[in-house]
Structures are given as structure tokens and as C-alpha cells.
């Protein structure tokens, strides 16, 4: 029974990882950009939520109303002012610029908030749970998972059913011809980054409610998100959800064997899948 419980907890944790991954997947899909600062931006979102919820006396869940637009605006500005200048055939400039950004965010957070771990206090909902027979489900983990599913369904709908999604796909296919359709590439890229950071903001807030975080917590979040993307298959949003679930389950099962194996087990499952199925478990058909 313990094992089944561990699997269920892992799957629910996977929802959070899928949200880490969705933002990465989105900007890679639209502009082939891999954002090394992604994890630090997740942690930054958690700190923005901390400041707004403490400062305004809001529940962190309500703080989302502020954090999401703030991060989206930051993403748009970041893309237009900095990252667009690095976009081209050479992948080194965006990689190194986002790497520099990662160091800046980490140390700025260290200055502003110290290295002490912080946590977002969401109140009684954090400890609420429901019993399903022998299994106890936390309300919060289930809620995070449901939101992850909703976020991915929303992104999927946006990508395939809206004018913005069409613009994203067209720009991803052929940047110059998309310009001929009157799409300003710089603006489209800005919107993609804004959307990516909006998802990141949601992920950051739930990360902060579920666990404590500190300024150095970004690196492993980037890695978890990245592993979920690769396990699920590049360019497949639902695959990303599965990738997150597989990673989450691997981690909780690893922790069940020995607490020291939690993260290691996730990495090893990732490397195994990379060895056996290098294109991921659910590669995109038209890719």
C-alpha cells in the first residue's frame, strides 16, 4: 500500500514538474530558445509571491493575480530588450546570456532575501486531505495537479485554436515568411516569453506553497523541467505532462528506497530513457 501511495504522490508531484517544463517547452517550440535562467525565474516568482502576499496580507493563491501579470510583463520586456538581440543561427549567445541572467537573479535574490529558506503560507488548505479508502490525498497536491492539467490544456488550446497560436506556429515554421504576413517577429517572441513566464509564475507560487525555497533553488527546477520535456518528447505538451509524472514517480519511489536517492533516481530514469528512446516517449509526429 505504501508503494501505491508513493506512486500516487509522485504522479501528483509530476504535475508541478510539468508546469516547470511547459514554459521551457513553449519558448523552445516557438523560437528554439533554451532559457538557462528558467529555474531561477520560477524561484523569482515564488519570491515575488512572498513579497506580495506578506506585504498585502494576501493568501499566496490570491497573489497569483499579481504575480502572473508581473512575470509576464517582465518576460515580454526581457525578450524585447535583451534576448531578441541574441536570436539567430548561433545558439551560444542566448545560452550564455540566459546563463548570465541566472547568476544575476540568484545573487539579487540572495541580496534581497538572504539565503534563509522561505515558504509561502497558504493557510489550512495546505494540510487538508481526503481519504480514499486506505489512500490519503492532500488537497493541495491534487489541486496543483489539476491546475497543471488545466494549464497544459489551455496552452494546447491556445496553440492550435487561436490566432496567437497560429502566429506562434507560423513563426516557428518560417520566421521570415511569417514577417511577410505582417507578424512582427520581435513582438511574437516577446509574447511567447510573456506566456512562458506567466506559466512559470503559476509554477513558482505552487512550488513555494508545497516546499521551502531559497535563492539557489532554481538550478534543480530547471533540470527537473528539462528532464520532463525530454522524457515526454520535444514539442509535445501532453507528453510533457507524462514526462513530469514519470519523473515525479521515479523520485518518490527512489526516496522510498532511501531518502538520499530521491533526486538521483529521477536523473537515472531520465538518462535511461535518453539511452533507450532518445526522442522521448511521445515524440511529436509532424516534427
Amino acid at each position: 500500500m505504501d508503494w501505491i501511495n508513493a506512486i500516487i504522490q509522485g504522479a501528483l508531484l509530476g504535475g508541478l514538474y510539468a508546469m516547470f517544463a511547459a514554459g521551457l517547452s513553449l519558448i523552445f517550440g516557438v523560437m528554439r530558445l533554451v532559457n538557462i535562467a528558467h529555474g531561477d525565474l520560477i524561484v523569482l516568482s515564488a519570491y515575488v509571491a512572498l513579497t506580495t502576499s506578506v506585504g498585502l496580507g494576501l493568501n499566496p493563491l490570491l497573489a497569483l493575480v499579481i504575480v502572473v501579470p508581473v512575470m509576464a510583463g517582465f518576460g515580454y520586456a526581457l525578450q524585447r530588450l535583451v534576448l531578441n538581440r541574441t536570436m539567430g543561427d548561433d545558439l551560444l549567445p542566448p545560452l550564455l546570456v540566459t546563463f548570465g541572467l541566472s547568476i544575476i537573479i540568484q545573487n539579487a535574490l540572495l541580496m534581497g532575501y538572504s539565503a534563509d529558506p522561505q515558504k509561502l503560507q497558504a493557510g489550512p488548505i495546505e494540510t487538508a486531505s481526503v481519504n480514499l479508502g486506505p489512500i490519503t490525498l492532500g488537497v493541495m497536491p491534487v489541486m496543483v495537479f489539476a491546475i497543471a492539467v488545466a494549464v497544459i490544456a489551455g496552452l494546447q488550446w491556445m496553440f492550435y485554436r487561436t490566432a496567437l497560436g497560429r502566429a506562434f506556429r507560423a513563426t516557428s515554421d518560417r520566421q521570415d515568411i511569417a514577417q511577410l504576413m505582417g507578424l512582427n517577429r520581435a513582438h511574437v517572441f516577446g509574447l511567447a516569453m510573456a506566456l512562458s513566464l506567466a506559466v512559470t509564475a503559476i509554477a513558482g507560487v505552487f512550488l513555494g506553497i508545497r516546499t521551502s525555497f531559497d535563492p539557489a533553488a532554481g538550478a534543480s527546477r530547471l533540470i527537473f523541467g528539462f528532464e520532463a520535456v525530454i522524457i515526454g518528447g520535444l514539442g509535445n505538451l501532453w507528453g510533457t505532462l507524462w514526462g513530469g509524472i514519470i519523473l515525479g514517480v521515479a523520485q518518490t519511489l527512489g526516496a522510498k528506497i532511501n531518502p538520499g536517492y530521491q533526486i538521483l533516481a529521477g536523473h537515472i530514469v531520465f538518462l535511461l530513457i535518453l539511452a533507450v528512446r532518445p526522442r522521448g516517449l511521445f515524440p511529436r509526429m509532424d516534427g
Binding site: 497560429r166 506556429r169 507560423a170 515554421d173 515568411i177 511569417a178 511577410l180 507578424l183
Partner: peptide, 25 residues
């Protein structure tokens, strides 16, 4: 408007989406 050499349609868009995006202005 330009009809580019080699057509250069958007492969991830359907026929109708290719037309709609042409009119998105």
C-alpha cells in the same frame, strides 16, 4: 504582398490556417 519562390507555406498550419494567417492584418 509576396508569393515567395518555392511557395514556403507553413507546414504546421492547415490549408485554411495558412490562408487565415495571410489575412491576419
Amino acid at each position: 504582398a509576396l508569393v515567395p519562390e518555392g511557395r514556403l507555406l507553413f507546414p504546421s498550419l492547415s490549408v485554411e490556417e495558412n490562408l487565415i494567417i495571410g489575412g491576419q492584418l
